[in-house]
Design a protein around this nucleic acid. Structure first.
Length: 396
DNA sequence: TCTGGGGTCCTAGGACCC
DNA sequence: TCTGGGGTCCTAGGACCC
């Protein structure tokens, strides 16, 4: 049989993960409607009892309090979630060589035929793994095991919570795909769903039977790959844990209530965002030379500004000086503002940061072109830049 | 008194070059 | 005079995810 010579993909998805983590420390809340998200103003995770009451993801806390006063509302404890998540990774690594931590509550893993053989069969392998996880972590996961990532991902959803779904034959796959609505496919979002529905595609099964040629012609390349994956062709590779230092961007955002037009309040939030983003960058020893910031108005429109800075930095002072120049422009929207954010792009590891423009400037300065360069930078980035850059230089 | 916060990847099209 | 055809690199923003 072919399947015995091929790897399978395992997907593990934490059940009500944040709530489940909280319950490990507060078992007395077991069986009660519990949600996490107090500090964010919306429900981020719900226990199944809370879901049963009608609480949905994203529901505002004030509304939950009003409609369902019996719900226990908890703030986030990310350290706890990370701790449990990394223990989960360790357990998976004792069963599988390649484990990909996809998010705090989800993992993919490559399961080799030898591993299955050791336990007897797929079912026994998963039962063993599942038992160990529950015993050690006191939280449950739902599992999908299939030929590809996309199939495993859909499989794990089918019997949530605490489910185990094995797609070991073509028939298993077809049955699962027939049960999966086009609204619930990983990688197909709200822009694409209506377009597919126009083509009479209602289920994942309809999707895999849709003409590949037409898909290629009218939809994106990633959708073509997704279709192949759901047909059983291994396209999306399971990759080992990425180094956090390979991160491409760092952002810090904040919502403040009430929404405001007061530029002082807004600027204070942006400063705080910049500081948080920089703290994060410092921990990862990363620097940036491109930043952006945005405001979100109370009617949920985003306004972005992007700025290149002529050196590599993670100094909030330097960043804020650069942002300050664009600040009046973005304030011109003249609406109430409900949230702000600062994003650091173009991240480099500090130890192999390319020779930054500042160093180049020093060289040029030594050649006697000091004013020319300084003026250029002032013209482009404002007077503050020179000073800040200089003070940064001394610190380094 | 509707609607966190933190990410990635793809793509169309402009800039620039020969 | 209405005028080529490539190619590459970069960027903004769309789409999607947990």
């Amino acid at each position: 049989m072919e399947k015995e010579t091929k790897n399978l993909v395992l997907h593990a998805d934490g059940d009500s993960f944040f709530v489940a983590c909280e319950l490990t420390l507060r078992p007395e809340l077991q069986g009660k409607p519990v949600i996490v998200g107090e500090d964010r103003g919306i429900a981020v995770a719900m226990s199944k009892e809370a879901k049963k009451l009608g609480v949905t993801r994203g529901m505002p806390i004030f509304k939950i309090k009003k409609l369902y006063p019996e719900v226990v509302i908890l703030p986030h404890h990310f350290d706890l979630y990370h701790e449990i998540s990394s223990k989960m990774q360790q357990i998976l690594l004792s069963y599988c060589q390649i484990v990909e931590v996809y998010s705090i509550d989800e993992c993919f893993a490559l399961v080799e035929p030898a591993e299955i053989k050791y336990f007897g069969n797929e079912k026994k392998f998963l039962t063993e793994l599942k038992n160990e996880i529950e015993k050690t972590l006191k939280v449950t996961y739902s599992f999908g095991l299939a030929r590809t990532k996309a199939l495993a991902k859909q499989a794990s959803k089918l019997e949530k919570p605490n489910g185990v779904v094995l797609l070991l034959s073509k028939d298993d796959e077809i049955e699962a795909l027939k049960k999966t609505s086009i609204d619930d496919i990983w990688g197909i979002g709200k822009q694409t769903i209506p377009r597919l529905k126009n083509k009479k595609i209602k289920t994942a099964y309809d999707f895999i039977n849709f003409s590949e040629v037409e898909l290629e012609k009218y939809f994106s390349a990633s959708l073509v790959d997704l279709q192949k994956e759901l047909k059983g062709e291994y396209i999306f590779k399971v990759t080992d844990q990425a180094d956090p230092r390979d991160q491409k961007s760092i952002q810090a955002t904040s919502t403040f209530r009430p929404a405001s037009t007061d530029s002082k309040i807004i600027w204070r939030e942006i400063s705080e965002n910049a500081e948080r983003a920089c703290t994060n960058a410092r921990e990862l020893k990363l620097v940036t030379n491109k930043i952006s910031f945005f405001i979100k108005t109370s009617d949920f429109k985003y306004y972005f500004e992007e700025i290149k800075i002529p050196l590599y930095t993670r100094d909030p002072g330097v960043i804020l000086n650069a942002l300050e120049l664009k600040f009046p422009k973005i304030l011109k929207v003249g609406k109430k503002i409900r949230s702000t954010g600062v994003i650091l792009h173009n991240l480099f590891r500090e130890e192999n940061t390319p020779r930054d423009l500042f160093e180049e400037q020093i060289k040029v300065l030594e050649n006697g072109k000091i004013e020319e360069v300084a003026d250029k930078i002032r013209a482009k980035y404002g007077r503050g830049m020179i000073k800040r850059a200089a003070s940064l230089k001394r610190k380094v």
